[in-house]
Design a protein around this nucleic acid. Sequence first.
DNA 1: CATGAATGAGTTTTCATTCAT
DNA 2: CATGAATGAAAACTCATTCAT
Lengths: 214, 214, 214, 214
Amino acid sequence: MDDQPKPSARRQRHITQRREAILDAAASVFTAKGYSGASIKDIAEAADVADGTIYNYFANKEALLLGLFDRLVDLERVDNRVASAAADNLDDAVIGYFGVHLAHVRAHYDVFRAIIPEVLSTPDLRQRYYGTFVAPLLAVAEAQIHARISQGQLRQIDEQQAARVVYALFFGLLCLRVLGDEAIQPSESTDAALLNTINHLLLRGWSVSEPGDD
Amino acid sequence: MDDQPKPSARRQRHITQRREAILDAAASVFTAKGYSGASIKDIAEAADVADGTIYNYFANKEALLLGLFDRLVDLERVDNRVASAAADNLDDAVIGYFGVHLAHVRAHYDVFRAIIPEVLSTPDLRQRYYGTFVAPLLAVAEAQIHARISQGQLRQIDEQQAARVVYALFFGLLCLRVLGDEAIQPSESTDAALLNTINHLLLRGWSVSEPGDD
Amino acid sequence: MDDQPKPSARRQRHITQRREAILDAAASVFTAKGYSGASIKDIAEAADVADGTIYNYFANKEALLLGLFDRLVDLERVDNRVASAAADNLDDAVIGYFGVHLAHVRAHYDVFRAIIPEVLSTPDLRQRYYGTFVAPLLAVAEAQIHARISQGQLRQIDEQQAARVVYALFFGLLCLRVLGDEAIQPSESTDAALLNTINHLLLRGWSVSEPGDD
Amino acid sequence: MDDQPKPSARRQRHITQRREAILDAAASVFTAKGYSGASIKDIAEAADVADGTIYNYFANKEALLLGLFDRLVDLERVDNRVASAAADNLDDAVIGYFGVHLAHVRAHYDVFRAIIPEVLSTPDLRQRYYGTFVAPLLAVAEAQIHARISQGQLRQIDEQQAARVVYALFFGLLCLRVLGDEAIQPSESTDAALLNTINHLLLRGWSVSEPGDD
DNA sequence: CATGAATGAGTTTTCATTCAT
DNA sequence: CATGAATGAAAACTCATTCAT
């Protein structure tokens, strides 16, 4: 009797599942072979569907990449709420900023590995990534730095450059992971230690402060 | 009497010039379209030669990429001598390390833009780049940090992680440039300002040091 | 009720048909232009499919040649059973040996014409052909000659050389056909006459027997 | 003082030498890689000249093949005089016919190996070879057989077919050699033994003659 | 919706041939 | 004549995309 109870609901769920499965497969194959090196056949096999089926869910190959991209966007949006709830305390602010992003990368590492090379090489995607991820985060950092300077918590540094330095630090770590550096492969403990190192760096620097310094 | 003393000398020079011209074209096209997106036809047109001519100078498309790579290696080697001549003074050391690398990137920016996406996506190249550029520079940084800690110039920080953080900062800046961030496009003045910001950061941190801090 | 019992059966048959059609086209084009002279485009046109379709059935151009080769192997195997059923009678043995092979060539003449030039020029294929066709047939001939000599049916001739002579006779006729000699183009009647001539030759020679002979 | 004595004579000799050297190289490379598989560069290297030089002596690649071909023709012509000086004696006639041809093949084996696959696969060359070598030799054989039958030396056999059988025997042996059969690789002793076997076969057959024979 | 065979445009690569030196 | 770099047509092969079943 349950023949057509919620045809759209169940079907919708099925469709979503398929989409996600295909995206998972795409992420995995893109990571292994790069976007151009990955064929639709590869992805179809990884997703255990026929070639043609992919085109029922995505307009074309590029849409798979954008699909992965959008996944990150969706998730980032959620996380950002947390991130933007910045603390009064400077340490908490730094730890919040980097902690959220490091966790984000950790959770979606496969997708990042798949996307980043393409982001760097494809003008279209480059702009999209910059607009979606980089610019907002730079803005957040810049605003925070500006505010902290006004509040006298930070020195008088070039806000724009400082924000870039902060973001570069984060992005560079991500790249180092992609490059295979074994000392900082993503894990909760590694990230915790890193957070500590970074926090110390940003706020106090590494040099032994001479008495009466600055 | 000098009628035929350098038949090969002139020819050799010609060959080298052609090679370089083709590599220049390749760098430019790779940057614009990515390695996979660039066709030999594109590169040939950019170099103003016929398709087949490229194969008189390079075994295949991949050899173009490796040719670009080797260019960096050759040049880096020269620069490294300077880099390794580290100063006693902490500020000079930081400025030396980053200054040399930023200058290197500035000088060969086109090649970096062309290569980095491939480095991140191609396992082969990834290893090659890591072994040639990343590992040595990490080692230099680590050794310096270790020495400075021993000498009491730096705090007791995790040397391994600190070195990664320093390199990530550098690499992240490079990526931000590739991503098109306008605030830090490579130029002598930008780099000089950056150097200052970074130096301050690494050695003294950004927070306003409260009296009796740490 | 038989709605979906042979979804793969029909498809399988279709695939086999396509494969055979493409092989037929390849045989025809190879014969006309030689293996190297034949382009995939030529073959695709002859088979009335698109270029790419051929690669859905054969890994590469060489596989077409090997496909033709394997066809002969399959068929030869069947025929060989007959061939090895050698008669007591000498005449029957000769007629059996040559009859079977001449019939085989007649039936697959196109394939032979396509393959033989390549067999003679390509080391790989040469070995393959020699191992698959020549060596076994030489062995059969040698064994037969040996046995017949033991039984006193044949003179004391060099078995090894005699077997080669017999095979050479057969192969040479095949080549003469390929070369276009009109007097012996394959047909049942030509082959029958040839058989007779050969049989006479091998067993009794052509010279007029001295008095008392025959 | 010998500055320009016989400019044309010496030069002519030089030119001929170069031509021959290039043809030698071509024969060797064709044999090793087949006509299509051999590149002009390969041949130029084997002949120790530049690519372009070849075109000073031959119009194009095909002309190299025809050049090899013509070499055989020239030589065959000489040999044929001997061959056509047929003996009264049947044995001598057979031995003359096959002996000359086997020797010819032995002397120019490389050229035969290089040419035969192309002869079998290229319509043009096929006709040329047939007209130049096969037809005349078939005619000689046919004429001889005809004459011998008239003279009562040979039985009443089909002259046309018999001639084909004789030629096929010869050509088949050549092919067996090209195919790599080790038992009959060309050498003076092998050929001598073969001659004997063939002579016996053609004239007396291999079966044990009934009482009163031989 | 799922399938996967068919398609053909596009890519890399080879190589016979030309021609300026 | 010798050279060998330059050429560009042509070949083998790939693969994103379509569509009949």
